[in-house]
Structure formats: C-alpha cells, structure tokens
Design a protein around this nucleic acid. Structure first.
Lengths: 113, 113
DNA sequence: TCCCATAGTTCGGAAATTCGGAACTAACGG
DNA sequence: CCGTTAGTTCCGAATTTCCGAACTATGGGA
C-alpha cells in the first residue's frame, strides 16, 4: 500500500483523461468530486446512479481517475479524501473538463420516458 | 456490406465520443478529417503518425468514429469519402470537440527532447 | 463480357482490459 | 488485543481490441 501515485500535471495525457471519463460511472464520480470540492471517497459514492458499484470496481475507478491526473487522493484516518485537480487540468487543457461534464449533464435528463 | 449505419445526432452519446477519441490514432484520424473537411478514407490515413496501421484496424477505427457520430462515410466509386460531423456535434455538445482536439494538439509537440 | 486491380469489410483467434467476489491490509476505538 | 470500518489486492470469467488472411464491391480495360 504505497503512498499512491499521482502524475505531475505536465505528464498528464489527453488520452488518459478521455479514457477515464469515457465511462459514465467514472464521469459521475468525477463530476461529484468536482462539484463538492472534496468528497470522502468510495463509500460515499458507491451508488451514484441506480446501480450499486462493488468496492473493488470502485477502487479501480478511483485508481484510473487518479492515474489520469484528474483527482488527488490522500488518506485521512480510515478514509480517503479525494480532491478534484480540475484547476490544474484546466490550466493545461483549457475548456476540456467543462465541455465533457457539460456534455454528460446535457444528456442525463434525456433518458426520461 | 450494408449502407453503413450512422446514428442520428440526438442519439449520439458523450461516452461514445470520448471513447472514440481516447485512442490517439483515432483522434489523429478525426483531426485530419475535420481539418481537411473531407478526406478520401482509409488508405490516405494509413500512416498518420510513425506507426503504420493495418487495413483491418483502420476499418475498425472508422467504424468506431462513425458509430460514435463523429464522421459520416459514403462510398464514392471505389473509395470512401469521410466527412466530419463536427458542426452537428458542436451544436449538441458545445466546445467539446474543440477542447479535445486542442488538448491533443497541445501535447503533440511536447514530446520533443 | 470476363478478368484484374484497387479499396474496404468481415472472420477468427491471440492478447490485453474490465468486472466483481473473496481474501487481505491499514487505521482507529474500545 | 480484538472488532469494525474503509480500501486494496488477487484472480478467474467475460468482454474488447488487434491484426493477418480471406472475402466483397466497384471500376477499368482487353
């Protein structure tokens, strides 16, 4: 259980970000973290949609987001605090995150009957 | 060899777009088509980077881009003409494509020593 | 008309990813 | 020291991706 790897912002690659956010579950997690500013990790996000995400999958999702450079995670007692790195990413790839989150937000409601 | 399936713009999902463009090769193909306005398909794009892409993979890439709603392909004699649907996508997801292509464009040169 | 060349597509199996349950580890609180 | 909470790791099953080989479609001669 090493100190968790976070890429430097200049090592962040666009394909990693797109891949990370190409999964609606991960995008929802990231959107939630970004909106809240700081969320107490996994347990709090286990059921964002209607689907319950198993712990192991959730852990993997956080790892993908972390290694893509989208979030920063640090242990705080028993739990994990996740911060969005959106300011850094915004500086490097202007408009990217806003456009992606916006795109998802736009279709969320369209699934209604 | 059916008439090729293209989703209606309102059926286009953000996750499909992100997934399609999360592959640098596909992103490069899409960028090329978008910049040129209309490109004579596969053969013309077989070696965008340093890597030669086999025909079957190229065909699969075009299929992914097409089914994500990013391009429109139509047969024109022996070859295929591919058009970017960026105007439609822009109307549905404002700023998305520009931000993504911009992000890729920004790091392309950073790989220099 | 028949055959060839060009441009893509489909098939099929190997390689790489993803998913999720079970077991494991870390950090407190009695 | 034991139990509980919060996450991580392991590993097998299911899915996806990759690419060579075979196939299909279209146009141009001879």
């Amino acid at each position: 259980m090493r100190p968790l790897f976070h890429p430097a912002i200049e090592d962040v690659r666009p394909e990693a970000i797109l891949h990370a956010l190409a999964d609606p579950a991960r995008a929802a997690i990231f959107a939630s973290i970004t909106q809240a500013g700081c969320v107490q990790a996994c347990a709090a996000l286990a059921s964002l949609g209607e689907r319950v995400i198993p712990k192991s999958s959730l852990s993997a999702h956080f790892k993908v987001l972390r290694e893509a450079g989208l979030i920063r995670s640090e242990r705080h007692g028993v739990e994990m605090r996740n911060h969005s790195r959106c300011a850094e990413v915004e500086a490097r790839f202007p408009g990217l995150l806003a456009a992606i989150l916006n795109a998802y937000a736009g279709v969320k409601g369209c699934t209604a009957p």
